[in-house]
Write a protein that binds this DNA or RNA. Structure first.
Length: 153
DNA sequence: GCCAACGTTGGC
DNA sequence: GCCAACGTTGGC
């Protein structure tokens, strides 16, 4: 099993929105970056765990834990001409954008990006690095366990 | 709202 | 295949 961090803009999909969905499960639509797509398409597996992160907001940071549910599939929004994620050059026979579904495992206490930056143990964490823009990044087992401990305190 | 960082586009 | 221009991301 692998560990990930997945960013979401709370004005789009927030942790509270996710927790109010009937199955607390959502398609991780809208990723239009090849590296992030490849993580989902090629490396994610059913049962992988991810940190749910709010970005582009007043209080960026950790808000919960989610789990990958089922298999990777084409992002449905790429075929919807009314969506801002529509991609006219993608076809159903050869889709360009892929994604997974994630299910909420639990809402956690909030840990701010400012706090996370204080820990030497997390100094190599992708999301904390200068210039980081990737919306999906791998998290090491060590980082995962360190953050799990923070969440228990 | 600023702006550094970085990905993508497209002319050559 | 280089690289300048452009667009987007996202913390602050």
């Amino acid at each position: 099993m692998k560990y990930w961090l997945m960013k979401s803009e709370p004005s789009d999909v927030s942790i509270d929105y996710l927790s109010q969905l009937p199955k607390q499960t959502i398609e991780w639509y809208g990723v239009r970056n090849y590296q992030a797509r490849n993580f989902m398409r090629d490396l994610m597996n059913d049962g992988d765990l991810a940190i749910f992160w709010h970005s582009s907001c007043r209080e960026p940071g950790v808000y919960g834990i989610v789990k990958v549910e089922g298999a990777v599939h084409p992002d449905s929004y790429q075929f919807d001409p009314g969506s801002k994620y529509y991609d006219a050059s993608s076809t159903t026979t050869n889709p360009r954008w892929w994604c997974v579904d994630v299910k909420l495992v639990k809402k956690t206490k909030y840990i701010s990006i400012t706090e996370l930056r204080k820990y030497q143990e997390l100094s190599e964490m992708q999301v904390l690095k200068k210039g980081n823009r990737l919306s999906i990044t791998p998290v090491t087992k060590t980082e995962w366990e360190f953050i799990s401990n923070l969440l228990q305190n």
